Amino acid sequence: MSLDPQGMAPEDLSHAGSVTDKAIEYMIEQGIAPISIASALLGGALGLMARTMEDKAIARVLRSALMSVESGELQEMRQQGAAQPPAS
């Protein structure tokens, strides 16, 4: 697993993201509430980080996520999602 040119993301991040997106899509099709899906994914991610990363690295990941929320990046994603027609 190698890092991108900026040394930030592993090369398999896109693959992991695609698999996660498919799992989310499946759970939505099964009628699982979005908050339950998000809570389960977050809990799983935190558990994985706890088993594989140092606390300082986990804190950096969480700070980055918080900065995305505070900068409005997630709001932009929400607006882009609303502008896209539903998949059939």
Rank of each mutant, 00 (worst) to 15 (best):
E73Q: 15
M53N: 08
S68A: 14
E76Q: 11
A87Y: 04
Q6M: 07
A82N: 09
S88W: 01
G31V: 08
D55Q: 09
E76W: 01
E54Y: 04
R51V: 01
G7D: 04
A82R: 13
I32P: 00
G7R: 02
A38G: 14
R78S: 11
S18W: 00
I32E: 08
P85D: 05
E76A: 11
I32Q: 08
E25H: 09
A38V: 06
S2H: 09
D55G: 04
R63P: 00
L66F: 08
A82V: 01
P85M: 06
E54L: 06
D55P: 00
Q79A: 11
R63Q: 13
R78W: 10
A59Q: 12
A40K: 10
R78M: 11
M49G: 10
A16I: 07
M8K: 13
A23Q: 12
Q80G: 00
A33G: 01
H15Y: 14
Q84S: 11
P86F: 02
R60A: 06
L62C: 08
S2C: 03
L48T: 12
M49V: 02
G81Y: 06
L3I: 01
R63Y: 07
I35W: 10
T20A: 15
A38R: 09
G31L: 06
H15C: 01
Y26E: 10
L74E: 05
I32L: 14
A82F: 07
E70V: 13
G43F: 03
L62T: 06
V19F: 01
L48E: 06
G47K: 08
S2I: 08
E29Y: 07
R78C: 10
S2L: 12
G81F: 06
A9R: 14
M67K: 11
S18V: 02
Q84N: 10
I58Q: 02
Q75D: 15
G81P: 01
A57R: 07
A57S: 11
